[in-house]
Design a protein around this nucleic acid. Structure first.
Length: 278
DNA sequence: AGGGGAACCCGTACGC
DNA sequence: TGCGTACGGGTTCCCC
């Protein structure tokens, strides 16, 4: 569930909590979440590394890890139920039960990757591998350089529905089902429209709507729909400001028509207003 | 090349 | 009540 705003919230909080700490011991209890590394190699590599920075790229939480030798990136992809939580000794056993990777820090706290359904992943990447991986992802929609020209370049060549294009991580990083639905509602654009059919004016509206909804959600610490919790274990409040997602059957707050839910656009739950999105 | 579909995983909801 | 099953959801990988 965590998309760009939720991942950004986790990364910012976590940075403040653990920057400068050294990983002293690592235990992998659920090795099936690991990618690109074995449990043994993850443990031996991480031990002794300093957490230099925690930040976000797309929907990934990236821990920059440094030592006298080679730098590493621990790349966490929470998917639906994954999250990074810091245990200062008071974490309840019910939470610890879902810990997949536990990293003890030099102040005796433990940084857990916790994941109930374990569709999320934890990968260890060299600087070169991370660069290759990151380069395959599209641009960050909140970057200053991401203007309407850059946005148009990402979407206009595709014959896919505009909603699917917004969610395609190779074209645009960090946008998932919630914010694709919200941005299209705000811009008054039908999610099923072929991307290449959007006019210059529509692209301008959508570019603005997308950036606004992402920024507003970050300000509200993200959307907690079912499972998402931030690094402090708390919910985000942006769900109150959602106009489309999760509101199928309710009247549109702009025109009063009932919002429609369909799976016909991209196989995902799409919510839109037949009265004012076209 | 780009697109479609399966696999990954388990709590929750629902049917019998 | 208890068991079985369908479902969801983003990304990756395989195949066409």
């Amino acid at each position: 569930m965590p998309e760009l705003p939720e991942t950004e919230t986790i990364a910012r909080d976590l940075h403040a909590m653990v920057v400068g700490r050294v990983i002293v011991q690592v235990a992998v209890t659920r090795p099936d979440v690991l990618r690109e590394v074995t449990a043994d190699r993850l443990c031996t590599t991480l031990e002794g590394l300093t957490i230099a920075r925690v930040w976000r790229r797309a929907k990934l939480i990236v821990l920059d890890l440094t030592s006298a030798a080679e730098p590493w990136h621990l790349v966490v992809q929470p998917r639906f139920t994954g999250g990074l939580l810091v245990d200062d000794g008071r974490m309840p056993a019910s939470e610890l039960a879902y810990s997949c990777v536990a990293m003890r820090l030099d102040d005796d706290r433990t940084l857990h990757y916790r994941d109930v359904r374990r569709l999320g992943t934890v990968a260890l990447m060299s600087a070169a591998r991370f660069s290759e991986y990151s380069c395959a992802l599209g641009p960050e929609p909140l970057d200053q350089s991401f203007d309407v020209v850059a946005f148009s370049g990402c979407v206009r060549s595709s014959q896919q529905p505009i909603k699917a294009v917004l969610m395609d991580q190779r074209r645009l990083a960090g946008v998932g089902n919630i914010y694709a639905n919200e941005a299209l509602w705000r811009a008054g654009i039908d999610p099923s429209r072929e991307a290449s059919s959007l006019t210059q004016g529509e692209l301008q509206h959508l570019h603005g709507a997308l950036r606004e909804v992402l920024a507003a959600s970050i300000a509200a610490r993200g959307t907690s729909f079912r499972d998402y919790r931030d690094a402090r274990g708390e919910r985000g409040t942006f769900v109150e400001q959602l106009a489309a997602y999760g509101r199928g059957g309710e009247p549109c707050t702009r025109c009063g028509r009932r919002l429609v839910v369909t799976h016909a656009v991209d196989g995902r739950s799409t919510v839109f207003c037949p009265g004012c999105q076209y």
